[in-house]
Amino acid sequence: MGLLDSKVCLITGAGRGIGRETARRFAEEGAILYVTDYLEGSLDPLIGELKEKYHTDVTPLYFDVTEESAAKAAIMSVKKGHGRLDVLVNNAGIMRDNVIGMIGQKLLHDVFDINVFAVINMIQLANKLMSRQRSGSIINISSIVGLEGAAGQLVYSASKGAVAALTKAAAKELAPNGIRVNAVAPGLINTGLLQAIGENKIQENLKNVKMGRLGEPIDVANVLVFLASDLSGYVTGEIIGIDGEATV
């Protein structure tokens, strides 16, 4: 018996990195999955893998999380499909930045539209289903830089700091409805996003991780399993660091 048996879970941005690994771990734990991405067909390999390996009831939903009507349609399809939503993982996000003095309005809007405003919107939509069933777990992805800040990452840090703050606010507001809201704050996680900064920079940053290794997507996914499951039934409003004791 899995930790997420029969729980209906929606994971945004499941096409790669932490989202993809989370979908795998949730499937392994028996979840019924809705996985989303914006690129049509990009989830096909994952869907095939989950069905073959875990016999998962998994449905892909392709939409842009920043479009309110599309997000609403996605939640409606979950409602029509299973009549409930037990877990929402707000994983979709982008990491773009520039140094102070070169932060343009488009960059600001792009990052906040996806990393913050879409998350708030998804929480509002998920709440419609979760409030009716008087239960649910919402998990947001913050970042170590959202809590500590990082030079050269003002916009991304601010967006992930906002995620931490909105997680705590939502937890307070939704606790009476039986809905838990938590976030994780990953450090250096070995995803495509991190690889993009280059090996030299990675090695330089690694010196600040006391455990001496990069985190892997599964390190994050395992914590998300805990937060999604009933094991964390009395945990809400928490921001859990997953960083191997890193400093920024």
Partner: peptide
């Protein structure tokens, strides 16, 4: 709003 959404099986825009 929750009662209306339930009664008519709709999801209202914010």
């Amino acid at each position: 709003i929750a009662a209306l959404e339930e009664a008519f099986d709709i999801m209202m825009d914010t």
